[in-house]
Design a protein around this nucleic acid. Structure first.
Lengths: 190, 190
DNA sequence: CAATATACGGAGGCAGCCTCCGTTTTCAAG
DNA sequence: CTTGAAAACGGAGGCTGCCTCCGTATATTG
């Protein structure tokens, strides 16, 4: 099967990839999910062609940017699974998301894009891992009779990002998001 | 004050305004809130300059498109205020929104834009009327001790559109939106 | 019918999207 | 170290959309 006597990947390619991800963090952080990809390329000091070769779509770039964050979210989810009462674990996880997102407001749109549109369609395993971690948490709550059984992990994630995204930026952003999120979590009780 | 000996508004202007709104319904309905305004002008059969003269911003155009819908939403809110138990009234109003939005999926983004970004900043009276109608409903529920008192009308509207917007289009859209919305409404209980 | 206030339309300048392909660089075999 | 081919680069080019500006056309009014 594996007909794969390949060269080692070229070092310049690897380097440019990093530069692009770094630049994307910057530019998307400021300009939001519609920021110019040409601006990303400029900031990275590479040609626009190079950007497109590495990341054929906007989403692919976002995905790369959030790779680490997703890992962390996953770790948090798995941690929480072992410990607390499930409803509070879910609440904590959602809060953790808000904290993470708070420092990268501009990327929020990108993240929610990645977590919903793109990955929701089943494309990347990483997001599926996150989803199934949440599913386990939900299941635990359900069998304890604590959580209603008409909610899915997707519901949680989509609603989380929906709320984060819809809120007006401003000094009260965090406070408002957490407040509305808590209302939602309270609604999860059986 | 009113220094206003003006000519009657020109008939062609009035007609073009209608054409533009009609075209915007079409084009935004398909292409969503980022659809091309030049496409709207083309479809209306007028120059792009004419579009911009009538509607200086994208939001102004959206606003014109939704004018009637907003009236209707307002009427519904005021109706409900007189009748049911407040929590259920709110639920009904939110559901009415979903129904309204369902038939114009493409315009959802536009509507939510209008209801949140634009109007939320306090600009147009119409949306403020809607908000204060909801506020009255909330207040009624609060003083009856039925509804928690850390929720605002803006919270409701923003969350509503957030949920509608975040959901994947598809056959189950309506069902899913209503389900998640109900969870949120349940969370509103004191 | 004229005069003029109003409104029209689209060219023009700028920016972003994405593709395509000639040029450059890296790798590794000899 | 040389060398040649695989891999990667970069940006010009073609397209579309944004918005402004202003010369031209037309409805209204006396």
């Amino acid at each position: 099967m594996a007909e794969v006597r390949k060269r080692k990947p070229r070092s310049d390619a690897q380097k440019n990839r990093e530069l692009l991800i770094e630049a994307a963090k910057e530019v998307l952080g400021r300009g939001g999910p519609n920021a110019s990809l040409e601006a990303v390329a400029r900031r990275a000091g590479v040609g626009i062609g190079t950007l497109y070769r590495h990341f054929p779509t906007r989403e692919a770039l976002f995905m790369a940017v959030f790779s680490r964050e997703l890992d962390q979210l996953l770790a948090t989810a798995e941690d929480l699974a072992e410990r607390e009462d499930p409803l509070e674990a879910i609440r904590s996880w959602l809060h953790a998301n808000v904290n993470l997102v708070e420092t990268k407001r501009g990327m929020l749109g990108a993240l929610s894009l990645v977590m919903t549109e793109d990955l929701k369609k089943g494309y990347t395993e990483r997001s599926n891992l996150v989803l199934s971690a949440m599913d386990r948490l939900l299941e635990k709550g359900r069998s304890a009779g604590e959580i209603r059984d008409d909610v899915s992990a997707e519901d949680l994630v989509q609603t989380l990002y929906a709320i984060c995204y819809a809120r007006q930026p401003g000094p009260d952003w965090r406070e408002n998001v957490l407040r509305v999120l808590d209302i939602f979590v309270d609604g999860l009780k059986r």
